[in-house]
Nucleic acid binder design. Structure first.
Lengths: 380, 380
DNA sequence: CTACTTTATTTACTTAGTAAGTAAAGTTAA
DNA sequence: TTAACTTTACTTACTAAGTAAATAAAGTAG
């Protein structure tokens, strides 16, 4: 959050309609600054104005709020075998979306081309003019460099140092930022989810693998990718694709869970439920608890959100976790630790990617058209 | 790193003497901006100027560098039973220091008073005028709030929500920032140590307890406290002061190590060496390896630095770690992972605290006297 | 001695704000 | 009714911190 525009937009996102006077108090800006910035934002059709509640005393306030249709972002959620594209508004609400599947061995260049084609279709179907798209957010199933340009490593998909941002910018002509999928969804939960008051949040995504994203909000906000799937829970255990032995992912992800159930066609919504009936479950659950409690000890999240196949786990699973986890973490963490299911509407993946794009291309400094209107104008 | 002054000072700290032209290229500032800022810094006696190496072509550059005696910070390292005070220059070099011991049950107010008294003595002995002290950095053995004002929880010392920053500001009249000890030392290693090229670093501090600090450098720099001592390595194990069972600290910290050696008077420099000869060692070492590999998996440091009693461990210990750890972390981490001893000169604790103070009161935005000369002047 | 290259400075300007005063829009009470 | 008061919002004049572009400085190469 760098400039005044960003401070005001961020406050309006998190705090809802606010009077200019309250904005000044909340952001630390002068009232003059707030007036100016709001005028700029109003000129750009980014704000609504409405009467606030009548005050006991003094001039009544007019509250400003962000116009949800003041701009849009495109978002793409990439999995090893599927891409989902969406157009979202400034509330991170999905206005149009569609998905395509591909073989996991498809070259990334082809995946980008196909996803870009689908994106053009989705944009057309949404009837949003191309010019009001602020940018593109891409979620990838692996680690990303500091600037959000390159997917450095996706263990599951087998990708390495793929410059997705550059590739999508070339294909679609939109400024692009990429992010780790689980971290992006964690950010969306922290921003738009039911527990947005939390100071920090760990989002666990169970699917083909098991990954997690950690978000800390506040002044020093940050997100990080958490390789919980490759925490070693059984040092002498079976070999894992990551190169280690006895990683959690070898026990607690879709394939091994289906393996222990003994059926390959269990729908993933029923996976945990079915696994809980097997004799292997106590051991598997213990491994999960072990990796999770260590993660909590080291990162100290206030809130754990269960996503992917964990979101559809039976209540008994969530209850068990709530009963067992607190005893295995430090007391200062125990008092606050909440465990909940995803609170965002499906599809969650594009929601996360959209959230990252909104942050970068809207909330951090305001839309680029506002920040630098003169540079282009001066040149002309 | 917010403003131009901060960018230039930070670059000079990390990159040594640099010409104004190179500073402009490195920081992204305009050459005019660099000239102005360097003039301001020169006026404040903060810079040295010296001829650069003769160029093949063009006007020869004059290189500027930070004058180590352009300002000083006070630093205090607080342990449960000891306080060490130092005065350091802008290179984070200790110019004068002294320590005092106290009973662990001493009230914090008394500890602050005693430490402040000692600080006045150390300042006097250093012959540094009080007015050239930029601020105070305090290292504490526990977690700290986001602003570096309150020690929220020190398990070992039994402190809770102690507002050390406020207390020391009242006692000494210097702007104060507090930080977690191991994290502060990690930061010092990342800044001034032999491995300052590392992108991220985990500093492990073995003493009465075992704690760690993690630093990530670069654009999104951050430090965090890592409670490696309370990673559960033996779920059914003995009760720990943190409230859990079978924490690493119950096996791998000074008291339990002395316990397994069977002598209470082993000097801490010889602790690991002696412990390695006992029959319990393979199990203890395995526990340590387990907690450490999980920490590496979750945080992904490029570099592990061994501090405290690990710094004086025999070579055989370090070699064993180098041999055993890589196989137990993910391949993308394995290729880079380096394991080394502390590279900073003793006393390391005050060095860390000084580093945090220097960051806050000098490198981030330049000294406060430069940033806001007019506000006070205008008022007068 | 002139052309060239690179470093450093100066001048004029821009951006993003602040401080302080003023106007606006209501309530309360004599 | 009208003056006093409270709070919001806006206007004006100013400042801090930088940029762009032109210029000066200090050397080398031919």
């Amino acid at each position: 959050m760098a400039n005044g525009i960003g401070k005001i937009l961020t406050h309006l996102r998190d705090g809802g309609p606010t009077s200019r006077a309250d904005l000044a108090r909340a952001t630390g800006l002068s009232s003059a600054g707030v007036t100016k910035i709001c005028a700029t934002l109003s000129d750009a059709k980014l704000l609504h104005e409405a009467a606030g509640k009548e005050p006991a005393l003094g001039r009544p306030a007019t509250e400003v709020s962000i116009r949800a249709d003041g701009g849009y972002v495109l978002s793409i959620h990439l999995s090893p075998a599927q891409a989902r594209v969406a157009v979202c508004n400034l509330d991170s609400k999905v206005l149009a979306d569609d998905a395509l599947s591909y073989d996991p061995s498809t070259p990334v260049a082809t995946i980008v081309d196909k996803a870009a084609d689908l994106a053009r279709q989705v944009i057309a179907s949404s009837a949003i003019p191309y010019g009001s798209l602020l940018g593109l957010g891409v979620g990838v199933p692996g680690s990303v460099d500091e600037d959000g340009r390159v997917n450095t490593h996706s263990v599951l998909a087998g990708w390495r140092d793929v410059p997705f941002a550059q590739m999508f910018e070339a294909a679609l002509g939109l400024p692009t930022v990429i992010a780790h999928n689980a971290s992006a969804i964690a950010m969306a939960e922290a921003r738009y989810g039911a527990w947005k008051a939390s100071e920090s949040l760990l989002y666990i995504l169970l699917g083909k693998g098991i990954g997690a994203g950690f978000v800390k909000t506040g002044a020093h906000e940050r997100t990080s990718i958490v390789e919980i799937g490759h925490v070693v829970v059984n040092p002498g255990g079976p070999h894992c694709r990551c190169g280690g032995h006895g990683c959690l992912e070898r026990y607690f992800s879709e394939d091994p869970l289906r393996g222990c159930i003994g059926q390959t066609d269990v729908p993933h919504e029923a996976l945990i439920s079915a696994a809980m009936d097997t004799s292997d479950w106590p051991q598997i659950y213990e491994y999960f608890l072990q990796a999770l409690s260590t993660t909590v000890t080291l990162l100290g999240p206030e809130m754990i959100v269960l996503g992917g196949d964990l979101n559809t786990a039976p209540d008994a699973f969530v209850e068990a976790l709530r009963a067992d986890l607190p005893a295995r973490v430090m007391p200062q963490q125990r008092t606050k630790l909440a465990i909940e299911r995803t609170s965002l509407p499906a599809p969650v993946g594009v929601h996360g990617a959209a959230c990252v794009a909104l942050e970068r291309f809207f909330f951090a400094h305001g839309p680029a058209t506002l920040s630098r209107p003169s540079k282009a104008a001066t040149r002309a």
